[in-house]
């Protein structure tokens, strides 16, 4: 297929052209979209594919952001090294949380994961010595090879490739036996178990993956915002991620990017509605659940575009 390398070349070209052509404001927005999409990608795996509803994504993003920042501020570990280390630790926490799905499912799982978000937020507020408490903490700059990346224009070269790498990897894993197994578990845990799948291990692995992606996202978004405020990492943020996943398409990695773009860019065009933004997002979420439960990525023309990018079989809607 000659189209694939062509599209790939176009993407590379666009990637290097954007910083030359766009002002800082838009580059900052692109970084925000990419970082958010990475967190939402975690939900695509655990909730979209494996069918395990999670409101803990806010907690994982917070742990990634705070963890990497604390490592940098207190121990001088640069962010580029701290983020992956913290992400692996948070993934371990996600795996343990996943063990809970042995006993808890559905609405109760939503509540239990919500509790995780609440607990992490409380810990951030009360562990003042480490986190700066309710006042928050400043994020050390992202330094790489002696250069501090401070603007959106600079962080762009880190956040966008990392997100692209994870999106493509996720897409391939979804098309493989791993994606099949998670999809099967979503549709019938009983049957999946009876066909020899270790359902609990898969669900725990899905939680670990969502925690890992959330932590990386949090770690990358932290230097972009330069300041961490514990008030941000609450229940609203957890629902924000879930809403993006629904609007983009619960089972689609590219949907995570599309949904994030909508939720990051829309406020720019709704300046007049600023105080009603929550309402706009709520209506958007409700509208999608009722009218297009498979999200924007299920729009026919977008699916065709997605199929072009895929070698073997695309993920099922």
């Amino acid at each position: 297929m000659p189209l694939r390398p062509l599209l790939f070349a176009a993407a590379i070209l666009a990637f290097f052209a954007a910083p030359q052509l766009l002002p800082e404001f838009y580059l900052f927005q692109i970084c925000l979209i990419a970082g958010t999409a990475l967190a939402v990608l975690g939900l695509v795996v655990v909730t979209g594919l494996a069918g395990q509803i999670s409101l803990a994504q806010s907690a994982f993003v917070a742990l990634g952001g705070y963890g990497a920042s604390i490592l940098a501020a207190s121990w001088g570990v640069p962010l580029w090294a701290g983020i992956p280390v913290v992400a692996v630790v948070v993934a371990g926490l996600g795996f343990l949380l996943g063990q809970m799905t042995l006993r808890v499912a559905g609405h109760y799982l939503a509540l239990a994961t919500l509790a995780v978000t609440a607990i992490v937020q409380l810990a951030l507020i009360h562990w003042e010595a480490l986190t700066g408490g309710a006042a928050g903490m400043a994020v050390p700059p992202f330094e790489i090879m002696g250069r501090a990346l401070t603007s959106g224009r600079e962080l762009y070269y880190v956040i966008v490739p990392v997100t692209a790498l994870f999106i493509l990897t996720a897409q391939n894993l979804i098309a493989s036996r791993f994606g099949r197994a998670l999809t099967a578990i979503r549709q019938s845990e009983t049957a999946a178990e009876a066909m020899g799948l270790d359902v609990l291990r898969y669900k725990a692995a899905a939680f670990a993956a969502s925690a890992f992606l959330g932590a990386v996202a949090g770690g990358l978004l932290a230097p972009l915002s330069t300041y961490l405020d514990p008030a941000q990492y609450g229940i609203t943020y957890a629902i924000y991620f879930l809403a993006i996943a629904v609007v983009g398409g619960m089972t689609s990695p590219t949907g995570a990017v599309i949904g994030s773009a909508v939720f990051v860019l829309l406020p720019n065009y709704l300046q007049a509605f600023q105080s009603y933004l929550g309402l706009v997002f709520a209506l958007l979420l409700l509208g999608f659940i009722v009218l297009r439960p498979n999200g924007l990525s299920s729009l026919p023309w977008l699916r065709q575009a997605g199929a072009l990018l895929h070698r073997t079989t695309g993920p099922k809607p």
Binding site: A184, Q187, S188, A191, K316
Partner: peptide, 10 residues
């Protein structure tokens, strides 16, 4: 399974 437990969307 008695009442079939297939992975319906697959």
């Amino acid at each position: 399974f008695q009442n079939t437990e297939l992975f319906g969307e697959m």
